[in-house]
């Protein structure tokens, strides 16, 4: 098995953290994993993306020409990546700000209103983790426990309160989607 996911959005939406936290969770579960961020001039345009590959054997290329999953946090990212997703793959859309629908009928589409859910929790900054709740649940690549362990190691030095709100955000996203 080899699964590639692209996480994309505005810089500042925490898309690199989404990819990293997931990649680390996959590492905890003993998978081969690569994480490749966009870099350099690409970043200057204000968008960011990263590609995570997870596999039970050595990964040939960390690039995803045909990602299985696409986690998109804003409209421009949807535009630039939608044609690349593999048939039978799935979109995870931040439906709070993404107004358009992907022009693909051969894939699953999951919408998560991350802004609304995060503001119900009282912290708009955890939108990315809300999305990860939905992603982890539907893709079943890593367990919720591994993901939370990864999140904890990232927040590590910060206060307990930060982990608490992130855990809640993850659970809210996890429970939102059926």
């Amino acid at each position: 098995m080899q699964i590639k996911t692209i996480f994309a959005g505005f810089g500042g939406q925490g898309v690199l953290m989404m990819g990293y936290s997931f990649a680390q969770a996959a590492m905890f579960e003993g998978f081969h994993v690569t994480y490749l961020p966009s870099y350099g001039v690409e970043v200057r345009g204000g968008t960011a993306n990263c590609t995570v590959a997870v596999s039970n054997e050595e990964i040939a290329s960390p690039v995803a020409s045909q990602p299985d999953y696409l986690v998109v946090m804003n409209n421009p990212s949807l535009m630039s990546f939608q044609t690349r997703i593999a048939p039978g793959g799935a979109f995870f859309l931040n439906s709070s700000i993404i107004t358009g629908r992907p022009n693909r009928s051969d894939v699953d589409i999951w919408g998560v209103p991350t802004a609304e859910i995060a503001s119900e929790l009282g912290n708009p900054r955890v939108q990315n983790v809300v999305m990860m709740g939905a992603y982890v649940k539907m893709t079943r690549i890593v367990s919720a426990e591994s993901y939370l362990k990864s999140l904890k190691s990232i927040l590590g030095t910060k206060k307990k309160a930060a982990m608490e709100i992130n855990r809640k955000a993850f659970e809210a996203g996890f429970n939102y989607i059926e």
Binding site: Y20, H32, T34, Y35
Partner: peptide, 10 residues
């Protein structure tokens, strides 16, 4: 190369 430098792996 640029890619081995930028990418993360265990």
């Amino acid at each position: 190369d640029g890619m081995t430098g930028q990418m993360m792996e265990p």
